[in-house]
Design a protein around this nucleic acid. Sequence first.
DNA 1: GTCAAACTTTGATGCTCATCGACCTTTGAG
DNA 2: CTCAAAGGTCGATGAGCATCAAAGTTTGAC
Lengths: 113, 113
Amino acid sequence: MSRPDARIPEHPEPHEITLQAVLEALVDPVRRSIAAQLHRAGEDISCGKFDLPVARSTATHHFGVLREAGVIRQYYVGTSRMNTLRADDLNSRFPGLLDACLQAETTTPDPEP
Amino acid sequence: MSRPDARIPEHPEPHEITLQAVLEALVDPVRRSIAAQLHRAGEDISCGKFDLPVARSTATHHFGVLREAGVIRQYYVGTSRMNTLRADDLNSRFPGLLDACLQAETTTPDPEP
DNA sequence: GTCAAACTTTGATGCTCATCGACCTTTGAG
DNA sequence: CTCAAAGGTCGATGAGCATCAAAGTTTGAC
């Protein structure tokens, strides 16, 4: 079988996405910022293009959490790992949840710790 | 001054409710269960009437987190502390968020750890 | 083949939080 | 006043998680 790309980790199927995992993913401000940047851009973004306040190894961790929760989809283009927001999958499984988080994310300024 | 009841702790005003706090509150399955039971009942419930899998002192902690996040409102009736779901406040501040969590809570079975 | 770019992996660390048992407080009934 | 009911408070404990630096891996260009 022609495996697409051995570097691409597992994504949950739409029906495997759980509310618990999505909430755990979106409760972190860094991860919510990733989702918001992806939403605002309207196009796929590589991991390195995000504006994030953490080290790259930490960012990798956050992308993994989002992917395993089913919030983003990842695929490789060369050495760049691209990221897509799985808005349709989330909206059909938990209607209103993603929009509520994203809308609040853009209208409400981040709470500075 | 006729203070309403010295035992009643602080509640955030509607505009003080933050997405971060609400998500932190609803990410815990026990707290989400409290919100869901309150929603299903359609009426206020005292702390002792909830069906919760934790000790009483732990439940007290969870009620406090929900109250400080603005998810529930609490008031005393005798020795009983009653709880109200602040659905209107949440819906006007983060439209769709509460419904998304509650709907998924009732249709999706709890993930047993 | 060589090299840099772009991520990932691997510990290690530190902090937050859910949990509990034991004890204290307030209220209302008798 | 006395008591039981309903909760709250107080440490203590343990697990999970976000964070980082350092080293490893994979790819594409030259």
